[in-house]
Simulated assay, not measured.
Amino acid sequence: MAPADREARILEGAVAFFADVGFEGGTRELAARLGITQPLLYRYFPSKEVLLDRVYQEVYLSRWNPQWEKWLTDRSRPLEKRLTAFYQDYAQVIMTYEWVRLFMFAGLKGLDFNARYIAFLRATVFDKVVLELRVDCGQEDTSPVRDEEVELVWGLHAAIYYLGVRRWIYRMPMPADLDRDIALRVSTFLGGFSRVYADA
């Protein structure tokens, strides 16, 4: 097998392995599952830390669609349509066995996956959405985004992410029509946000 193909196969196996057993799983067990020796594993990934960083890159960053940021800020479309389109598409990426379980295991293990990804989301999604929400409420306010505003966006984001938790952690059914469910959540969020923002 070509080295690049072998590396990709090991990484793919590592993603599946850690999603199954959590990050307590060792490289010896991973190598056994992959049918290779531990020294061969370390030839491609010199330490477990290096391997975990590649797992993070593979699952959380390589699957990110840069077009999403453009969708969110395209004011030629109503904000509700933009948010709905983003979250419907985003949900297809995050509501997988590996994505949800690795994120939960990382938090329980105290890895930095969660903090890194949340910082990434703040820069690429949350702050942008807050600015778009201000405009949608008739405020051309470009002052720094406040934590209180981000918390409101978090409420919508977390509600959608929780659907994946329901499926892959609790083994409970998801809504039959996920796109419709997301559209309703976005609509509900926007109605509440405009009222709260006006009061604030």
Rank of each mutant, 00 (worst) to 15 (best):
P3E: 13
P3V: 07
A4Q: 15
R6C: 12
R9Q: 13
I10R: 07
E12M: 10
G13Y: 04
A14D: 01
F18P: 00
A19M: 04
F23A: 09
G26Q: 14
T27N: 05
E29K: 13
L30M: 13
R33A: 14
I36W: 07
I36Q: 12
I36D: 09
T37D: 07
Q38G: 03
Q38D: 06
L40A: 11
R43P: 02
Y44C: 03
Y44A: 01
F45S: 00
S47Y: 15
K48L: 05
K48D: 11
K48F: 11
V50G: 09
L51W: 02
L51I: 08
L52N: 03
L52Q: 06
D53W: 02
D53F: 03
Y56T: 05
Q57C: 05
Y60P: 06
W64F: 14
W64R: 01
W64S: 00
N65Q: 11
Q67D: 12
Q67M: 11
E69A: 14
W71T: 15
W71L: 15
L72S: 07
T73H: 05
T73S: 13
T73N: 01
T73G: 06
S76Y: 06
R77P: 04
P78Y: 04
K81A: 14
K81Q: 14
A85G: 12
F86K: 01
F86E: 05
Y87E: 05
Y87Q: 04
Y87G: 02
Q88P: 00
D89Q: 11
D89V: 05
Q92R: 12
V100L: 10
L102E: 01
G107P: 08
K109S: 11
G110T: 06
F113T: 00
A115Q: 13
A115C: 04
I118Q: 15
I118P: 01
A119S: 14
F120L: 15
A123C: 06
A123I: 05
T124R: 15
V125P: 02
K128L: 10
L131A: 08
E132V: 07
E132F: 03
E132A: 10
C137G: 08
G138W: 05
E140K: 08
D141S: 04
D141E: 13
S143W: 04
P144R: 09
V145D: 14
R146A: 12
D147P: 01
D147N: 03
L152R: 09
L156N: 01
H157G: 00
A158C: 07
I160H: 02
L163H: 00
G164C: 08
V165W: 03
R167I: 02
R167S: 06
Y170K: 05
Y170L: 15
M172C: 07
P173R: 10
P175D: 04
P175R: 10
A176W: 06
A176K: 09
D177S: 03
D179L: 03
R180W: 10
I182E: 00
I182M: 00
A183N: 07
L184R: 12
S187G: 09
T188W: 04
T188A: 12
L190W: 08
G191L: 09
F193P: 00
S194P: 00
S194G: 08
V196E: 13
V196H: 10
D199R: 14
A200T: 09
